[in-house]
């Protein structure tokens, strides 16, 4: 059976530090758009940290939640694409084929998670900042939609490495850039089709929820809710 890649994010560990956000920029050649474009809502952060306040000072509760493409199994972005640029890969990812994308932005409108980003201009790097670009990842041009890929380049590299050693990919072998950098180890990535994998084990936690799960999008990212002191549960 094909791998089904998924992720678990433990909100009891997350501190909102945004190491994942910058790691993602570095890994995936996400261009910075500058102040003026950012003011128009055109900044591209494949993963962001949402922050919620509840209550008034001093009884204010704060919560962080990293949000990235949920790689839905029933993804609203896929059926609306007229060119099949958004499609479901064999391994359960919401693929984005840049060559096919003609920039209708229907997918971004359909996505309830606000995780798709459009290139309103050709990305620009003041030289020699272009030398930081990761050669393993395409650089997207004007008119193309982009979003989190679960670092598919790392998935492919690990799969190729594993096949050259005539074995399957090991649990924990693949780490998307966000997962690798996370200082509190709040993020875990792995194969949901393997019930023994760490990500499958954590996804069965009684703290597990899906973001906007009621929409029926079947996200492959599971959030473990904030815990409280002395709850003493095993997860």
């Amino acid at each position: 059976m094909a791998h089904q890649w998924g992720m678990v994010i433990d909100l009891d560990r997350c501190t909102g530090c945004e190491a994942c956000v910058v790691a993602c920029h570095a890994e995936n050649n996400i261009s910075t758009v500058g102040e003026d474009q950012a003011a128009r809502g055109r900044a591209k952060h494949w993963i962001r940290v949402e922050r919620y306040y509840e209550g008034e000072f001093p009884d204010v509760k704060t919560k962080f939640m990293p949000v990235l493409c949920q790689q839905c199994d029933a993804a609203p972005c896929e059926p609306v694409c007229p060119t099949f640029a958004s499609y479901h890969t064999i391994e359960g990812l919401n693929g984005q084929v840049y060559n096919r994308c003609i920039g209708t932005r229907y997918c971004a409108n359909a996505c309830p998670y606000n995780v798709r980003f459009f290139n309103f201009y050709n990305p620009v790097w003041d030289k020699p900042l272009n030398l930081q670009l990761n050669p393993d990842v395409s650089v997207r041009e004007v008119g193309v939609m982009e979003k989190c890929t679960f670092c598919v380049q790392r998935i492919k590299a690990s799969e190729i490495q594993a096949s050259s050693e005539k074995r399957d990919v090991k649990d924990g072998e693949i780490q998307p850039a966000c997962v690798q950098s996370c200082p509190t180890k709040a993020m875990v990535f792995g194969d949901l089709s393997d019930p023994q994998s760490e990500v499958s084990r954590l996804a069965r936690s009684n703290r597990a929820t899906k973001l906007l799960g009621e929409l029926g999008t079947l996200p492959k990212v599971t959030y473990l809710q904030r815990d409280s002191w002395h709850a003493g549960e095993d997860s």
Partner: peptide
Amino acid sequence: PWMQEAPDPLSSVMWG
């Protein structure tokens, strides 16, 4: 530039 465009974790402010 990465630091300028990364939203502050609490305020979400960029470039300012």
